[in-house]
Nucleic acid binder design. Structure first.
Lengths: 352, 352
DNA sequence: CGGCCGCATGTAATCGATTACATGAAACTT
DNA sequence: AAGTTTCATGTAATCGATTACATGCGGCCG
């Protein structure tokens, strides 16, 4: 680290140019603070002349209402917390973008809570929420605050609207936005079977994960629907990462009795797996077919391009944000939204 | 969209169980509110007995200070805004994680401002900042608020600490955290030249981008240092995306006189480009060498694995957050930090 | 013409913490 | 012993907006 020169902390001690307050505007427009406030919040309740003077004064002074004061009085923060397990994961960032743009249009800001696998952080965000720093929260982590380890004390105090996104939270009476993981996994499995594959391996997500359980059910559904038996040896454990795909690939390469198709429950794993097969001299899809899940940007430029399930990530984010905004504004909100997935057929899967 | 059932907005209209206030704690502990406040902020200025009674009362009531009230009085929000051009980009999410974890440890929350190429959003975040909703901001977008289009009115009011990350902001008197893009690009160019390549193409970023200008200079430096002439035809325009890499690949495939090596200024472009070359029957690195920049997760599983420049993304985020926290807490802060990059040699580049 | 209503506006309470200043007791100082 | 310092604590002003309530004016109705 090459550290050139120093700058003192004067930025934070800057001569505090006290910002324009509502009082200043009121004085300049020769009205009361109440009138200024009303001119902004309920213009129709203020005479046109007064309103004009207020607006002029605001323009002249560049007045911006103090959010802390506003929040203190009105109990509204215009902030939403988004809790997610891993910010560095490609899968989430597109979703976040959908959330952010929808919140933005409605005048809400987005605060990120990256759990990073730490229960300590989870407790922190629960406290954060309980303290009233946000008006609502979107949960991408598959459970309510403190539901995992005894943080009930705090979570009981969380009375703000919540929305579950992607990982449904069983038993929680909050809007749930997701895809039909089970149906999608079943569909892909049947697609593989329909091409003649009888021996299909399944690379799983983390066992504790709800997504994983749904997709696994779907896999079994698909086998059953195709008249194929389920055999535990077909399941290779994974955790959605590239590295897990690489490990699963090594597993398959080492097998005497190889499956003819592999269904990976994330594109990352599929890409890592294909790479490992390739290095071992196995050709995809000639020797073995590989399918993914998610349709991330890299799926189309993988070699071969990846057959996968497309999740509408941006739309998922938008739908969750919309549902939350409905709740925040006292409107009824859909209780459960299931967005459609799409089977994207590319080159990594071929008939047997 | 399959919309099952409805839930009314009762979440937001819930019977407002007024939260515990400092007054309630004071009454229970039989002290004044001032003592409660001091017991939390400056425990050493309160007698042990009073402190114990206060803490007990807090435990009993589950009191959490109201952040809005605190902010109103103390002018501290404990929030930081992170402004970035594209949240969906893999490159940023690892950086964000570094920022988030460092801010978190220091007790700050992170608000995301995704510009999404919209000047309107930029103005919004400038106003947001000017309104005092955050204590500081980290700018990943290469310019100060309103510096691009006449938002000077608002940006003049932004007196909070700022830090520039990745894209340096020339002329701004704020800490700048970055890598030495020029040196890194030069190094890669020389690496290619040292392997015997005389005809090296360069796939650029957006021309207006500061990163791009630095890397382009580095490319020319590297050519010069290797005794190679620079020829404009070597430059293929890009914008860091996979698709731009695909387009650049088509360009190269169509050329009569192909370069023997291609230096892409992002891994996304390199991967898209390799894919296009492969589809056209050109082999990497046998027929043509390809180098990237960033070392994203997919670089190692690309086929062939990608020779690239590693940027310490998490550390960049951490360093920027640390610098900002220094400023926020009135400590001196490094004015400029340059983190080291690393030339990562894999299989996509070979001697001529 | 007197009373009632509605409208535009102002006054001041309120949100919940922090903190300057005041107070009184105990501990020193000379 | 009187005066000074220190310490723990309380009182109340303050941050800056929102909003319940009060006021005064003009129009309308009977």
């Amino acid at each position: 680290m090459d550290d050139i020169g120093h700058k003192d902390g004067s930025g934070s001690e800057a001569i505090s140019v006290r910002a324009t307050r509502i009082q200043d505007v009121a004085k300049l427009a020769d009205v009361s603070t109440a009138t200024v406030s009303r001119a902004l919040a309920t213009p129709e309740r203020v005479s046109p002349e007064a309103r004009a003077r207020v607006l002029e004064a605001i323009a002249k002074t560049g007045y911006v209402p103090n959010p802390a004061a506003r929040t203190l009085r009105s109990q509204k923060t215009y902030m939403v917390l988004v809790v997610l397990p891993d910010l560095a994961n490609t899968f989430f960032s597109k979703i976040l973008r959908g959330i952010e743009e929808t919140l933005f249009e409605a005048g809400y800001g987005m605060i990120i809570g990256d759990l990073d696998g730490s229960p300590e952080k989870e407790a922190h965000f629960a406290a954060f929420t309980a303290a009233g720093r946000v008006d609502g929260a979107i949960l991408l982590n598959g459970h309510l605050f403190g539901q995992s380890r005894g943080g009930e004390g705090i979570s009981a105090r969380i009375t703000i609207p919540l929305v579950a996104l992607c990982e449904s939270i069983p038993g929680a009476d909050i809007p749930q936005i997701e895809i039909d993981n089970r149906a999608a996994a079943s569909r892909m499995t049947q697609h593989l079977a329909s091409l003649g594959h009888r021996s299909i391996a399944y690379v799983s997500g983390p066992a504790s994960n709800i997504l994983e359980r749904e997709r696994f059910q779907g896999f079994k559904d698909g086998l059953a629907a195709s008249g194929l038996p389920f055999e535990p040896v077909q399941v290779i454990p994974g955790d959605y990462t590239i590295e897990a795909g690489v490990r699963a690939g090594r597993d398959i390469v080492a097998r005497r009795d190889r499956p003819t198709a592999v269904f990976c429950t994330s594109d990352e794993m599929a890409i890592g797996l294909m790479r490992t097969l390739f290095s071992a001299g196995l050709r995809v899809p000639d020797d073995i077919s590989v399918a993914g899940f998610d349709d991330i940007d890299f799926a189309v430029v993988a070699e071969p391009s990846l057959t996968t399930i497309r999740q509408p990530r941006r739309e998922l984010g938008q739908a969750a944000a919309s549902a939350l905004i409905d709740l925040l504004q006292g409107r009824p909100s859909p209780k459960r939204i299931r967005l459609e997935t799409e089977l994207v057929i590319r080159d990594s899967v071929a008939p047997l």
